[in-house]
Design a protein around this nucleic acid. Sequence first.
DNA 1: CAACTGCCAACTGTCGACAGTTAACACCTT
DNA 2: AAGGTGTTAACTGTCGACAGTTGGCAGTTG
Lengths: 213, 213
Amino acid sequence: MTLPVHHSLAGQAVDALRELVLTGEIPPGARVNEVEIAARLGISRGPLREAIRQLASENLLVLVAHRGAHVPTATREDVRALFELRTALECAAAELAASRRTDADVTRLREVCAESRRTYQAGERFPYRLDLAFHQALLGAARSPHIAEQVRLVQQRVVLLRSGLKDDPPHQHASLDDHDALVDAVAAGDPYRASLTMRKHLARVCAQMLAEN
Amino acid sequence: MTLPVHHSLAGQAVDALRELVLTGEIPPGARVNEVEIAARLGISRGPLREAIRQLASENLLVLVAHRGAHVPTATREDVRALFELRTALECAAAELAASRRTDADVTRLREVCAESRRTYQAGERFPYRLDLAFHQALLGAARSPHIAEQVRLVQQRVVLLRSGLKDDPPHQHASLDDHDALVDAVAAGDPYRASLTMRKHLARVCAQMLAEN
DNA sequence: CAACTGCCAACTGTCGACAGTTAACACCTT
DNA sequence: AAGGTGTTAACTGTCGACAGTTGGCAGTTG
């Protein structure tokens, strides 16, 4: 059996509310009505308020005095600025991964790349899920829990930005090549090249997000 | 007159509790008794619990089910791992600062360096305050609000680690030179050199923190 | 005397209620 | 009719109280 991850209602509320925000069920710009959400989650306002505070410090909500919390709306400039942070973190992760990777890490990375290509060539869109999986695998190889945690938080915010976009556009074929190149650099144990490749990759992804709207 | 920054008690509680943790008044390992702290702050448990949640997601507190919150205790390994994150962020900041700095930024940086030297040569310890000021000034020049925010959070955690150390050791003379070298690289508009210099600086500071205890 | 058991105090987790603020609507004035 | 004003409903901010859990202490038993 699967025990609930969080025993406390506040903990559950964090996950549930995060889900509501990231799926866009509470869209950017919308306010979080405490009584309504609390009722929907079947809890009282106390635990919900604690959850709101936590999500606010994860930058998934914005608090305004006497007006509660609302989901932030993203501007183009926000995307650019956020990717500066993401680049700083993930380039460092790529660098560390190149230094610390094991054979198992490389195998895992190549697996994800292969599955991505299969999915893509099967005619489907390159699913965002596999992109996340790739970056997760890379973080695992980097073995820096603090960096991994921060990347997770930033990726969350990127998901929020994506939810603000009308359509979930297909990842370009280029990303697949980027990922392969990254694995090569990591496998070769070349931190400098890994970092540079990651930087180019993220620049491309960022530009792509900015191109749409 | 200075109005209170936060109108809400929860907001005040965040600041007050953060202060208690960072000054070591609630030392690492100690539990946060909700009724006691709430009484000390003159508020009820509700807002305090919200504050606790927020500080927990800033990694200044650790939550344990049914046992409340306690201040995390740091191991040597934690320091090393945390500095990996700090290095990733501040190297990126140094890089950006070298690209974006204005003359005013450089002037400001040199000012801080000069004051640091004056203070040091006056026989006093190189105060941590001025070290923080330097890094803050550099972040200002980088003009990346998200990176700046994350650095602020990481520096907070470093302060917490420092509070766990018995003594607040004098900064070595080497840090002064590091800072000067950093300003030079930034002033020269050389991102690569700025990043590398920052990396060396932080490696030194980290080693220093690990050496004591 | 050690270990096990049952009780108890302290504390956390949660809820419902009250007070204060905000924003919108209706109403009055000019 | 436009603008200002008073009123009111909705919502947030806060508190006190209750229930459930935890860990320690005393008492008991082998």
